[in-house]
């Protein structure tokens, strides 16, 4: 037994597991998937290729990619139980609660099964369907059944909007999915590993992870960014709004990260994409931090003696703007 008996809040700096899936190199602002730096994957690879990389430890051959795409496409339909359970939830339910509940139903089993790659594929295939079906129900629209001939990203948009999106929009969502696919031992991943450590099943691990991702300190962040940008309204109001907000001790959404000491590499890629795709929103989103040095009005730097990293936009800020331009549910 280790003799490390002092309490470490948040387990910061404690090595809780060994992994080859992804590494967050905070000091150098790098995110690495299985040896590949994220910048080399983000705009080149499909979500399917990156998912294969995370599951198998290497990029797929053409035949392997086709097999994976087919397997994903074949498992996009919800089970009867999941459809009924989805309908049982009120249409104003928080989409993350819907996801938590319906993933749980979709994955029920008679007997405990060990996690496998095929089970991971089946689960991954169902997420867009659940979110899109629910999103359409909230809008009072008929559900759109998934299509087998579209990619993961393209099919998601198709199920949301009922029509195919432009290649540019599909590409943007694909890049977002690639960028967010893994990120070291973050809280939701860690929750999944804690659950898996009891030899529970894969769906149980995923349901626990969704519960953790829901928290505003974790996956809930992009939605909060959008809300703040909407409150700010226009680029020329940004400076005054942020200064007033700081006086009122309002948290700035989309800034600060426990690990990155420099700019989050995902934020950099998303920022560039946002500039290309949605210049107006880009203008608004970048105004408070248009220089490379953010103004000293971030919640963390406002605390004297804080040992937190220098504030820099986390991925949540451009991600929020991007998701807004896609008209995808911000909790996706």
């Amino acid at each position: 037994m280790s003799t490390n008996t002092s309490y470490v809040p948040g387990l910061e700096g404690i090595v809780a597991s060994q992994t080859a899936i992804s590494m967050v190199d905070g000091a150098n602002g790098r995110l690495v998937y299985q040896g590949y730096v994220i910048a080399d994957l983000a705009e080149e690879m499909s979500f399917e290729e990156v998912a294969f990389l995370l599951w198998e430890g290497r990029l797929p051959t053409r035949a392997e990619l086709e097999a994976l795409s087919l397997e994903l496409a074949a498992n996009r339909t919800l089970t009867q139980a999941a459809n009924i359970a989805l309908d049982a939830l009120p249409s104003e339910t928080d989409p993350m609660d819907v996801l938590r509940s319906v993933v749980s139903v979709q994955g029920v089993e008679h007997r405990l099964a060990k996690p496998t790659v095929p089970l991971a594929i089946h689960a991954a295939a169902s997420f867009p369907t659940i979110l899109a079906m629910f999103h359409r129900r909230q809008l009072g629209l008929e559900p759109i059944q998934p299509r087998r001939d579209l990619s993961h990203a393209a099919n998601y948009l198709y199920m949301l909007n009922g029509k195919e999106s432009s290649p540019e929009i599909v590409r943007a969502l694909n890049t977002y999915l690639v960028l967010l696919a893994d990120h070291g031992m973050n809280a939701s991943t860690f929750a999944a590993r804690v659950i898996a450590s009891t030899e529970s099943d894969l769906i149980s691990a995923l349901v626990g992870a969704i519960g953790a991702l829901k928290g505003p300190a974790h996956g809930g962040a992009p939605a909060a960014v959008i809300e703040q940008l909407e409150l700010i309204g226009t680029a020329d109001k940004a400076e005054q709004w942020m200064r007033d907000a700081r006086k009122r001790k309002v948290k700035f959404m989309g800034f600060g990260h426990r690990i990155y000491r420099v700019y989050d590499p995902r934020a950099k890629i998303l920022k560039e994409m946002c500039r290309r795709m949605n210049p107006k929103f880009y203008d608004l989103a970048t105004r408070p931090t248009s220089s490379s040095t953010p103004p000293g009005c971030c919640r963390r730097s406002a605390c004297p003696g804080s040992s937190s990293p220098p504030p820099s936009p986390s991925h949540a800020s451009p991600a929020g703007a991007l998701m807004c331009s896609n008209r995808a549910p911000t909790t996706a």
């Binding site: 948040g10 060994q18 992994t19 080859a20 590494m23 809280a187 860690f190 974790h218």
Partner: peptide, 9 residues
């Protein structure tokens, strides 16, 4: 937030 480190292998 509980966010431990991991060892890269």
């Amino acid at each position: 937030i509980i966010r431990p480190a991991s060892r890269w292998i």
